[in-house]
C-alpha cells in the first residue's frame, strides 16, 4: 500500500512540474505574440527526431496556423552535448533569427534538409551559404560574431534546463492560460486535432 501511495505522490509531483509555464520573451518564428496559442519548441539541429518534427509537423503548423495568426511558434536552441556540430548549427539558427523569421526559416529548412550531410562532414557553412544570397550570408556571419547570439543560445539552454527539458524535441503548448509539455515527435494530423480543439 505504501508503494501505491509513493506512486500516487510521484504522479502528483509530475503533474505539478508539467503545469509550469515556459518563459516566452523570444520572438515568434511564425505567427504573432498575440496569437491564442503559443508553441515553444526546444530543438537541436543535429537531432534526427527534431528534423522529422520540423519537416513533417512544424512546417505545416507554420503554414496553416502561424500564418493564419492562430499560433505563435517559438523555437529555442537546445543543442545536446552528444552532437558534435549542434552548437555551431544553433549559432547559425540563432543568428538567422536575429535577422528575422524569414531568414530563420530559410536557414532552418536548409539545416534540417541537409542534416545528414553537415552532420558527417561538419561543413555547416556550405549548407547555409547554399540557402542564402551572398549579401545575406555576409550579414549572417556578422551576426554570428555578435556575442548576443551566443548569449541567446546559452539562455535558451538554461531555460530548457529550468523547464526540465531532457530530450529533443520537447515542446510546450500554451493555450487558454494553461501550458502542457510534450516530448517527442508528434505527427501533424495529431497535433492539428489538439490545436483545433484549443481554438474552439
Amino acid at each position: 500500500m505504501r508503494k501505491a501511495y509513493c506512486i500516487v505522490l510521484f504522479v502528483v509531483a509530475a503533474l505539478a512540474s508539467v503545469a509550469r509555464a515556459a518563459d516566452t520573451d523570444a520572438a515568434c518564428v511564425g505567427g504573432k505574440p498575440i496569437a491564442p496559442i503559443k508553441i515553444e519548441v526546444f530543438s537541436d539541429y543535429q537531432c534526427p527526431a527534431c528534423r522529422d518534427f520540423y519537416l513533417g509537423t512544424m512546417r505545416n503548423v507554420l503554414l496553416d496556423y502561424a500564418d493564419a495568426g492562430k499560433v505563435c511558434v517559438i523555437y529555442r536552441e537546445f543543442p545536446l552535448n552528444m552532437h558534435a556540430h549542434a552548437r555551431e548549427a544553433a549559432k547559425y539558427g540563432a543568428s538567422a533569427m536575429r535577422m528575422g523569421p524569414r531568414y530563420w526559416a530559410q536557414v532552418t529548412d536548409a539545416l534540417y534538409q541537409n542534416q545528414d550531410k553537415w552532420s558527417s562532414d561538419g561543413n555547416i557553412q556550405a549548407v547555409v551559404a547554399g540557402a542564402l544570397t551572398k549579401a545575406d550570408m555576409t550579414r549572417l556571419q556578422k551576426e554570428m560574431s555578435n556575442p548576443a547570439t551566443d548569449a541567446t543560445i546559452s539562455s535558451d539552454i538554461e531555460l530548457g534546463k529550468k523547464l526540465e527539458v531532457n530530450q529533443t524535441p520537447t515542446f510546450f503548448i500554451t493555450a487558454k492560460g494553461k501550458t502542457e509539455k510534450v516530448a517527442g515527435v508528434v505527427q501533424y494530423p495529431i497535433l492539428r486535432r489538439y490545436l483545433d480543439d484549443k481554438l474552439k
Binding site: 510521484f10 503533474l15 510534450v182 516530448a183
Partner: peptide, 13 residues
C-alpha cells in the same frame, strides 16, 4: 525513440 510514457500523466519520459 524519445517519448513520454503517458502512464499516469504527461511529461514523464
Amino acid at each position: 525513440v524519445e517519448a513520454n510514457c503517458g502512464c499516469f500523466g504527461f511529461g514523464e519520459p
